[in-house]
Design a protein around this nucleic acid. Sequence first.
DNA 1: TATAACATGTAACAAGTTACATGATTTC
DNA 2: GAAATCATGTAACTTGTTACATGTTATA
Lengths: 182, 182
Amino acid sequence: MERKLLLLGLLQMQEMHGYQLNEMIDAHLSTSIDFKKPTIYKLLGQMRDVGWLEQREEEAGNRPPRRVYSITPAGRDAFKALLRESLAAYKPTDFIDHISLAFLDHLSPAETVPLLENRKAQIQALLHRVQSYDPHQGSMQLMVEHQIRHLEMEITWLEEVIERVVTKGIGMPGGTHHDRNE
Amino acid sequence: MERKLLLLGLLQMQEMHGYQLNEMIDAHLSTSIDFKKPTIYKLLGQMRDVGWLEQREEEAGNRPPRRVYSITPAGRDAFKALLRESLAAYKPTDFIDHISLAFLDHLSPAETVPLLENRKAQIQALLHRVQSYDPHQGSMQLMVEHQIRHLEMEITWLEEVIERVVTKGIGMPGGTHHDRNE
DNA sequence: TATAACATGTAACAAGTTACATGATTTC
DNA sequence: GAAATCATGTAACTTGTTACATGTTATA
């Protein structure tokens, strides 16, 4: 539903066609969310079918006509309902992509540190990209600021982990066990 | 691949059967990751088929026999390779579940604040659950600490957002526009 | 004149979850 | 004797991405 919320929110500002929505999302939100064209087109069709959106065809020469979507009163209601629901409900973040951190002690510090430094460099690169954004309008800017906070936290956290690996004290009780070998 | 990494990591400590792995994950990681039984069983089968795991059947009375998996040398190699790869590569977090924050200004502050307070309460509840965990062994503890950091950040961030909504200054430039209505 | 940008979409695939199926054993 | 726990798995569904298909118009 969050993806529908996003589309409805953007269409609330002005009517747009799919390609245009894709550009918007690409330009302003690509660092923080994945949302690809086929999905956009599909959801637009779905929302049109249930009456949240109205479709208007815009002919322009011989190319595929633009399908311009505008939000209907029903769509506006749906938007508000989704928005309230989504604001009030917190969905816990999935940490599966960080599971490797749990097995840090299976590698030697000498090997671990450069890997973590590499990871850190990537986060930093992303942070710089996000920071270089022009300010967005209204509360849209909150998305950017939130991501910046998040990335900054990730970096300081990683630095601490690296520090702990270096000074050897990784997981609290003496239980450090990376095994002897190549 | 992260899920396979997790299974391999757990099986590196000791051989286990699927049900047991599921219990482990449930007990120690359920606050931070989703990983359900059917997925576990499927991945165990896959990894057995490619020779990363060895399967041994343990009969016990008349009930379905336990299929106990132990990691093979090939599995150990795969584990290390996956671990290195996964440590070095940062996969950006998806913020789609936070998109509602971008449309905060479509609701009146009077309505927004309680919704956000509710959201905050949920994060706090989760934080308390995570904090009540016994310390995990070795670097596994890092997962817990990371999640705690994350949740604390989310809470302070939300508090700031609430503050900004209350004092009206939401998204930087004067562009606050929540529309007049019921 | 080749490539990028414009504009739409379908089809195949991926990677999970939820719901269902089965049956023994232990606990209340 | 009912319900929870132990133990396995399959099947259907969900929700998204990637790859492909198509054709026009502007740009290098």
